[in-house]
């Protein structure tokens, strides 16, 4: 697949933005400067970026408890993201949502829902609306491997398949749901086989390879736009951090983690860009510097913002 240089650089930029954002968030959390929990997307950047680069702004994603990366991949602003993590009025959700519900509707989101796989039905319904209104739009719900064991997930695939809705179901197999290995709670190893039960294509792709994800997502999105119905896209990856920042990880070997950490999707993409695709190293360095500055600016913006005024506590409960 021929990918324009500009697109390649934008992919790289978004992956670096996610990585830097997650490192900054983890750092703040470990120093006690963030409340709640932080579920990072480190090591999985190629999945969200590969998918979202295949989408347009008007296409909608549905997120999970682990959606900092999905939002940034879809184009969200780092400063308003960081302000939300800090519970500030200047955050995307005005401090009402925090890390687990962070969602930038302006860049095409249906929300981030922290009950595992509960975003699946929302994406199905949005896709139903697109189909009824003959709109050229696609809905893309993300879930984890563990999410694919829920009723939500199976009901949603069935309904979308039955009605040929424009959905791409992205299943990010990072191999764990908290401490539980997917192989211990599911008989099949290749989760894309589940698609067959619903009569839709199931595609399995290397989730450390942003171009492979992008290509598979592009095909699935084209199929959805053409009115041919949903696809199940499984991105095979790994969660190199704990389930949440600071989680003790007593259930897995450090050697296993090290093996996957070495597969770093950003380092891999970088060497491919330089080696195979002849991208100028300076262009990549410039992106990294630009992102570092954006992170500093985001932290400053977030710190400056104020927490919501208690007088507004009842706002947004009813429209």
């Amino acid at each position: 697949m021929e990918v324009a240089l500009q697109t390649l650089l934008e992919m790289y930029r978004r992956m670096v933005r996610i990585r830097q954002f997650e490192l900054a968030a983890t750092n703040l959390f470990k120093r006690g400067q963030l409340k709640g929990t932080v579920h990072t997307y480190i090591g999985m950047e190629a999945s969200g970026v590969g998918v979202c680069m295949a989408l347009r702004t008007e296409d909608l994603i549905a997120g999970t408890h682990r959606s900092h990366g999905h939002n940034i991949a879809k184009g969200a602003d780092l400063a308003r993201m960081m302000a939300e993590l800090m519970g500030k009025e200047t955050g995307y959700c005005k401090g009402r949502g925090g890390s687990m519900h962070i969602a930038a509707f302006e860049t095409g989101s249906l929300g981030a829902l922290a009950v595992v796989a509960s975003g699946i039905p929302l994406a199905v319904g949005a896709a139903l609306a697109f189909q009824m209104r003959r709109e050229d739009r696609v809905a893309v719900p993300f879930t984890g491997d563990a999410g694919s064991n829920t009723g939500n997930w199976h009901e949603g695939l069935n309904m979308a398949a039955a009605w040929k809705l424009p959905v791409v179901f992205v299943l990010e197999n990072n191999q764990y749901g908290v401490s539980t290995r997917i192989d211990d709670v599911t008989r099949i190893h290749d989760l894309s086989l589940r698609a067959a039960g619903y009569g839709i294509p199931g595609v399995r792709v290397d989730g450390f390879d942003v171009l492979a994800v992008y290509e598979a997502a592009t095909t699935a999105v084209a199929r959805a736009r053409a009115g041919d119905g949903p696809t199940l896209l499984v991105t095979e990856s790994y969660r190199v951090d704990g389930h949440y920042a600071g989680e003790p990880e007593v259930y897995r070997d450090r050697a296993e983690v090290a093996e996957y950490r070495a597969k770093d999707p950003i380092a891999r993409f970088r060497s491919r860009l330089i080696g195979e695709l002849a991208v100028d190293i300076l262009a990549l360095d410039a992106i990294e510097a630009e992102v570092a500055a954006a992170i500093e600016a985001a932290l400053a913006f977030a710190r400056e913002g104020s927490e919501p005024d208690p007088a507004t506590a009842l706002d947004y409960i009813y429209a």
Binding site: L60, A62, L110, G111, S118, I120, P121, L122, A123, V124, G125, A126, A127, L128, A129, F130, M132, A139, G151, N152, E155, G156, N158, M159, A162
Partner: peptide, 22 residues
Amino acid sequence: TPISENTIVGAATGAALVGMRP
């Protein structure tokens, strides 16, 4: 619809979020 109560309601929510009145 299929017999999928949670998804019936969730799909209604998704459609409502993008401007329908299910």
